[in-house]
């Protein structure tokens, strides 16, 4: 091999020490956080959600009464000094019920989205990485699950299985993974052909190493975004089920079943519906903003 140019080898490093290298090394997470912080609505959403989770955790200390304490003479009271959000049709303190109800709504979102993410990621990853027959079988299955109208499927299952909070979370999770699976599959399909994955294979890396060390970390950004949006979706679904009387059972409160109670008294006592409604609205909105903020912060194509 002959010399290529008249440049002496010693000069090779001359243009090093340039722009990029004077920067302090910044970890990926701190870069994401820095970009997320710039998104004002996402930050507001995040603050609201943190507050809501504190409320859920400390519900027993925040609630002014027991959520099941009835006081029929004081039924359908408008908001007042004593009952900040008024009372419902059997005189229970609404503020206390809404505070306790946050536990259900917020945990439903997390568990259901968690189940969906786990299932969707595993199925999508296997299909996308191995391709061929595995892909075919898994994707046909995904399409079948996808083609059921989700809400009717939910209603059917919920009316068959025992109606515990845990079952409801599980059922919501089990019906909402297909979209995620398709997305993860797409990510795997394109990432597995990337040169850094080929390089790892050329070094002799095992399938497990390639999947967990090389592909998954690069495929997770859209999954995290979609999971965040899905938490909001799951909260809405639970509310919908409870509204139809298929969700969390009385006397335990969830935002959905409080609204269900309020439905009958919409004219006389609109506050019963309004307060849990506002909380559902703000929580779901916050999750959507946080999801948007994450999408921008995690997108490697957007430079700073």
């Amino acid at each position: 091999m002959a010399a290529v140019s008249n440049q002496a080898p010693g000069q090779l490093d001359q243009n090093f020490g340039g722009d990029a290298l004077t920067l302090k090394p910044e970890s990926y997470m701190s870069m994401v956080w820095r970009r997320f912080r710039r998104h004002k609505l996402a930050m507001a959403g995040l603050c609201f959600l943190l507050l809501m989770y504190l409320v859920a955790v400390f519900a027993p200390y925040i609630a002014t009464q027991s959520y099941r304490h009835t006081d029929p003479p004081n039924r359908l009271q408008a908001p007042s000094q004593e009952h900040w959000m008024g009372t419902d049709n059997i005189g229970r303190d609404l503020f206390s019920r809404v505070i306790w109800g946050s536990r259900i709504s917020l945990s439903v979102g997390f568990v259901a989205a968690g189940v969906a993410v786990l299932l969707g990621t595993v199925i999508g990853a296997l299909a996308g990485y191995f391709g061929g027959a595995i892909d075919n079988i898994l994707m046909r299955f995904t399409e079948i699950v996808m083609s059921f109208p989700t809400f009717f499927l939910l209603i059917t299952i919920v009316s068959i299985v025992e109606r515990s909070i845990f079952n409801i979370m599980l059922v919501i999770g089990l019906t909402s993974w297909p979209g995620l699976a398709r997305m993860v599959r797409g990510q795997f399909l394109s990432l597995r052909e990337q040169e850094f994955v080929l390089a790892a294979r050329a070094l002799g890396a095992s399938n497990a190493r390639i999947i967990f060390r090389h592909i998954l970390p690069n495929a997770m950004a859209p999954v995290i975004v979609s999971a965040t949006l899905r938490i909001g979706g799951a909260i809405l679904t639970e509310s919908g089920l409870s509204f139809l009387g298929l969700g969390v059972q009385e006397p335990f409160p969830s935002w959905g079943n409080i609204i269900n109670t309020g439905r009958t008294f919409l004219r006389q006592a609109p506050w019963i519906t309004a307060f849990p409604g506002i909380f559902i609205f703000l929580t779901v909105l916050s999750f959507n903003y946080v999801g948007d903020g994450l999408r921008d912060a995690l997108d490697p194509r957007l430079k700073d």
Partner: peptide
């Protein structure tokens, strides 16, 4: 040419 030189070395 820098990279080619490096490969050459």
């Amino acid at each position: 040419s820098q990279i080619l030189n490096l490969l050459n070395e």
